[in-house]
Computed example of a mutant assay.
Amino acid sequence: MTAAGDLDRRIVIERSIVVGHDEYNYPIYDWQPLATVSASRSDVSDTERAAYGTIVSELVSRFVIRAGGLQSSVRPTDRLAYDGRTWNIMGVKETKAGRNRFLEITAKTGG
């Protein structure tokens, strides 16, 4: 079970928003911070493989955050910034700790 003391890291949830339009009136997108929150992290898997003449590595982790506020709207189209890396969100779900208490975000980096 997750407790508040387990949330020992700071992550930034980022969302892609329209910041303007180009000369053909196509939208220009940029990543903007949605929320900076405390989280816990546990690594799920790591892989390395050869691709296109180079070694590619990926790390999949689960981040647990408190539900509520802006961070409760996090979705797979958002991303995380943590530890100098960009993490692509693969899924978001409630934890077993109870309804609307904590969210579990599965994300990967690398690749």
Rank of each mutant, 00 (worst) to 15 (best):
V12G: 00
W31V: 02
V37A: 00
S42N: 11
F102M: 07
A67W: 04
M90Y: 05
G84W: 14
L7K: 01
S57A: 12
A107D: 03
L103N: 08
T86G: 11
T86S: 13
M90W: 03
D6E: 08
T36I: 08
I65M: 02
D30I: 04
D22W: 12
E94Q: 08
S57M: 06
Q32L: 03
N88A: 11
A107Y: 01
R75T: 15
M90F: 05
T106D: 05
P33R: 01
T109S: 14
W87R: 03
V92E: 08
E48V: 02
F63T: 00
I55E: 06
G5M: 07
E104T: 03
G68E: 11
I28C: 04
T47G: 11
G5Q: 14
Q71V: 00
V74A: 03
V56D: 15
D46G: 13
R79L: 05
T109L: 06
R9V: 02
T2E: 08
A4Q: 10
K93R: 13
N25P: 04
Y29T: 13
D30G: 11
V44W: 01
L7S: 04
N25R: 10
R75C: 06
G84I: 07
Y26I: 05
V19Q: 12
N100A: 11
N88E: 12
L7N: 02
A97M: 08
Y26T: 10
R101C: 10
A67E: 03
S57G: 06
L103G: 03
F102D: 01
I28Y: 09
S38A: 12
N88I: 05
M90I: 11
A3Y: 09
V19T: 15
G53Y: 15
R49M: 10
N88R: 14
V56T: 15
Y82G: 09
I89K: 00
S61R: 04
E23C: 08
R10N: 09
S40F: 05
K96M: 04
V37C: 00
H21Q: 05
L80N: 01
F102N: 03
D78Q: 01
R85S: 13
S40H: 06
S38R: 12
R101I: 12
Y82H: 11
L103K: 13
S38C: 05
N25T: 07
E14Q: 15
L80P: 02
R79D: 02
L103C: 09
T86H: 06
W87Y: 02
H21T: 10
I17E: 15
T54N: 14
T77H: 12
W87T: 00
T109M: 09
R75D: 14
K96Q: 10
A51N: 11
M90E: 15
T47S: 12
S38T: 10
L34K: 03
E94L: 03
T47C: 02
S57D: 10
T106Y: 10
Y52D: 14
A97E: 15
S42H: 09
A97I: 10
